[in-house]
């Protein structure tokens, strides 16, 4: 081989339309593959869609479950699995935030930005890989759920709709995580922030306990928490016990619609913010 410079790469002026989209998709594919290699090399990254939901299911069915009575009765094992769906999907955000912060610190983002690649592909690639790990999380929760006696009592379309809603929520939360990672660009801060936002979000919800017993001020937060609406949607669509249906607030009376609106709102806010933060010159 020679180390001589090649003739100048073909000049493609004003590349637009279809070819631009195809290049974008190819870049996303390359970067999705990169993120999946990360997961294979460092399986600990999968803990929040594997070990964590298994832990929660075991903890809440066998440890706390026997002490929890649902308002209006109902099997707690059947109740809690949809809650684990909800929190596992919300759990995507911290992972994305820490991953992007790591990328910025490692200098790889500088490399990407000096290449003639699509600008949005770095974020899209990571989020696509993240959606794939969310699907894995879904499978894990279904498997453990079935093992502890969780069953669905509706038709397959409803069950699939439940899964789809959960994934949509996951995707929207990932963009929020992306914005946080790009804003903080420090893995430790991203981790800390994730803890501060994420923990209240999953516990101040109907994921593990019914809202009826909470003090009023906390209850209002929990009623409007999207983790509650996505959980309530899943319970409704799976035919599991759903005491939230008795709570007379709009998001819990229309949990599917509330989840969709919330997801779209998150996307409308955090997609442009993330892209703007990514393009910021002093990002690295």
């Amino acid at each position: 081989m020679s180390l001589a410079p090649a003739a100048q790469l073909q000049h493609t002026p004003g590349e637009r339309g279809l070819s631009r989209i195809l290049w974008f998709l190819r870049d996303v594919l390359v970067l999705t593959r990169r993120s999946l290699i990360h997961v294979i090399r460092d399986p600990a990254q999968l803990a929040d869609v594997t070990i964590q939901p298994i832990m929660f299911v075991v903890l809440f069915t066998f440890v706390f479950g026997s002490a929890i009575r649902l308002p209006g009765g109902g099997n707690y094992h059947e109740y809690v699995v949809a809650g684990i769906f909800g929190i596992t999907m919300a759990g995507a955000a911290p992972g994305v935030a820490v991953g992007l912060a790591n990328d910025i610190q490692s200098g790889i983002i500088d490399r990407f930005r000096s290449l003639p690649m699509s600008r949005g592909a770095v974020l899209a690639g990571r989020l696509t890989a993240d959606l794939m790990t969310a699907v894995l999380g879904l499978i894990v929760v279904v498997a453990v759920g079935v093992a502890v006696g969780w069953r669905v009592h509706t038709n397959p379309q409803d069950v699939l709709a439940g899964f789809a809603l959960a994934l949509l929520f996951n995707y929207a939360m990932s963009w929020a995580g992306a914005a946080a990672g790009l804003w903080l660009h420090n893995p430790e801060s991203a981790q800390a922030m994730a803890f501060v936002v994420f923990f209240p979000m999953i516990f101040v919800s109907n994921a593990f306990v019914a809202l009826q017993n909470m003090p009023i001020w906390l209850r209002v937060v929990a009623e409007w928490n999207p983790v509650s609406t996505v959980t309530a949607s899943c319970r409704e669509l799976f035919g599991n016990p759903n005491p939230s249906a008795a709570v007379q607030v709009w998001p819990l009376q229309h949990p599917e619609l509330a989840t969709i609106i919330c997801a779209l709102a998150l996307l409308a806010v955090f997609v442009p913010i993330s892209i703007r933060l990514y393009r910021r010159e002093d990002l690295t």
């Binding site: 190819r26 870049d27 390359v30 970067l31 593959r33 990169r34 290699i37 990360h38 090399r41 460092d42 490692s106 200098g107 790889i108 983002i109 500088d110 490399r111 990407f112 290449l115 003639p116 690649m117 592909a121």
Partner: peptide, 19 residues
């Protein structure tokens, strides 16, 4: 500016494809 989890070869192929 290299990816720590990827091998040397995977790094180069990735940069090549993105170029």
């Amino acid at each position: 500016s290299i990816d720590e989890y990827l091998t040397g070869r995977q790094n180069l192929v990735m940069v090549g494809e993105l170029s």
